[in-house]
C-alpha cells in the first residue's frame, strides 16, 4: 500500500513537471520544471530498487546537465516565447482533438488489460540487495553489455563533435 502511494505521488510529480516544461512560456522555468521531472524519475528508480541509477539520475541529470542547461539559457538570454500566428486555421483545435483521441485510445488499451507478472531475470531484487547495485551494473557493463557500452561512447562522441560543428565560429 505504502509503495503504491509512493508510486502515485511520484507519477503525479513527474507528469506535472513534464507538462510544466512545455507549458511555461519562459525557458528558465521550463528548465526548472525539468529538474522536478528528473527528481520524480529518480524517486521511481528508487522504488524499483535501482539505487545506483537513482543517484546517478540526481547527480548527473538533475544537477550537472540541468546546471549546464541553465547556464546556456541565461548565457544566450532567451526571452519569453513569442506568440506566433499558426499557418493553418484551427490547428490548435485539431491538434487537441487528435491528442485526446490518442490518449483515450491509450487509456482504453491500458484499462482493458490486467498486467502480467513476467519471469524473473538473473538479478531479482533479493539478489541485487545482497550484491549491491553498483557492482552488478559495473560487472554487466564490462562483460555482457560491453558492445552497447562502447557504442554509447561513440554516440556521446558524436554528440560532442556535432555540437562543436554546429556552434563554432568559422573563419572564411
Amino acid at each position: 500500500m505504502a509503495s503504491s502511494l509512493f508510486f502515485y505521488f511520484l507519477a503525479v510529480v513527474t507528469t506535472v513537471g513534464a507538462i510544466a516544461v512545455v507549458a511555461f512560456p519562459s525557458p528558465l522555468y521550463s528548465v526548472l520544471a525539468l529538474i522536478l521531472t528528473f527528481l520524480g524519475l529518480a524517486g521511481l528508480y528508487l522504488s524499483l530498487h535501482a539505487q545506483f541509477v537513482a543517484i546517478v539520475q540526481v547527480i548527473i541529470y538533475a544537477s550537472a546537465i540541468m546546471m549546464l542547461f541553465l547556464f546556456v539559457v541565461m548565457l544566450i538570454n532567451l526571452g519569453r516565447e513569442e506568440k506566433r500566428e499558426l499557418r493553418l486555421p484551427g490547428q490548435k483545435l485539431l491538434g487537441a482533438i487528435a491528442g485526446l483521441a490518442v490518449f483515450s485510445m491509450l487509456l482504453k488499451v491500458f484499462l482493458s488489460t490486467s498486467l502480467m507478472t513476467g519471469k524473473k531475470g538473473s538479478f531479482p531484487p533479493e539478489r541485487v540487495s545482497e550484491l549491491g547495485n553498483t557492482q552488478i551494473i559495473g560487472n554487466l557493463l564490462l562483460t555482457d553489455y560491453v558492445l552497447p557500452f562502447q557504442a554509447m561512447g561513440v554516440l556521446l562522441f558524436v554528440g560532442i563533435v556535432g555540437a562543436v560543428v554546429l556552434a563554432r565560429r568559422r573563419s572564411r
Binding site: 558492445l147 552497447p148 557504442a151 558524436v158 556535432g162
Partner: peptide, 14 residues
C-alpha cells in the same frame, strides 16, 4: 533492441 537503438541514434544524430 539496445544495440539497434544505439546504432539508430548514432546514425540519426550525425
Amino acid at each position: 533492441l539496445i544495440t539497434i537503438y544505439l546504432g539508430l541514434e548514432t546514425m540519426s544524430i550525425s
